[in-house]
Amino acid sequence: MRNGGENRGRLLLVILIVSSLFLITLDLRGVNVLNGLRSGTQSALSPFQRAGNVVLTPVKNFVSDITHLGRTRNQIEDLRKQNQKLREQLISRKNQDGEIKQLKSILDLAGTARFKIVSAKVIAQGSSLAFTRAITIDAGRSSGIKKNMTVISGNGLVGVVKEVFTNSAIVMLATDPAFKVGVRIAGSQQIGILSGLGSSTANLQLLDNQTAIKVGDILLARGSVNAQPFVPGVPVGRVTSVSNAAGAVTQSATVKYLASFGSLGVVSVVVKAPKADPRDVLVPVKPVPTPIPTVTVFVTPSPSTSPSAPSN
């Protein structure tokens, strides 16, 4: 009897393992039904995530207020949103400036380097079980968001839309180890490939070994065919160190992302790419030091009657 029970248990275990392997095989073969199941789960979870966000926001704000010793969280959040809006306007303005420059130099070449964006709130961070860097935003298919659209913050590239659901979407962050983006160096226009490292820094591989790359160079997204997944001209990062290994086929460098991934509250999805490549107009402006007025004192020696004769 006990043997029978043990055999039945083992049979159940084998059936469950085979079922799991069967599911893995079906998923790896790309059966659409399984994708639909995940999409359905996200649609079902989305209201709970929103509710959780609403409930947890005061708690998080309270903890944050304690951490920040009395600074009002709401005020900071409002200022952050305002700042984000102004930065987006600045990006748009820079596009227009670039457009004017192009029109002046080449009259028949006109382009509107303007992003059409949909702003969204970050409602969840990636699970710690997933070993990936991703966020969930509260805008989805109903807001015109599609898979492989570029996601930006006020500082630059954030990532790419990986999955889209009705009212939410999952964004793969640029810090994800699987993330790769074609970039060009602002100014020299040399191209390379930037790979995520799982942190706020990334690795740049230049395709041409003859190019001189230096610390402080700004990298911009090179853009993809039909502007998906990457729209051209989006600021990506700043070179922090250059590796000049002797005999290396290509040059490599370490790059720090311009976007701050630790404090992503609101992001924007580029739903319409600019008609013209904005080139370098989105390069962040280096802070210009305020000139300190220099006081120059001219001392004129008093005229003496006789330079050779000592005065008494």
Partner: peptide
């Protein structure tokens, strides 16, 4: 084992899971 199967399916259906369906189940 049966509970692990059910829980694994739920975890696999989580949108934040990056593996194929059946991975957590197994």
């Amino acid at each position: 084992a049966a509970v692990g199967f059910g829980a694994g399916i739920l975890l696999d259906l989580s949108p934040s899971t990056n593996g194929p369906l059946g991975h957590w189940t197994l």
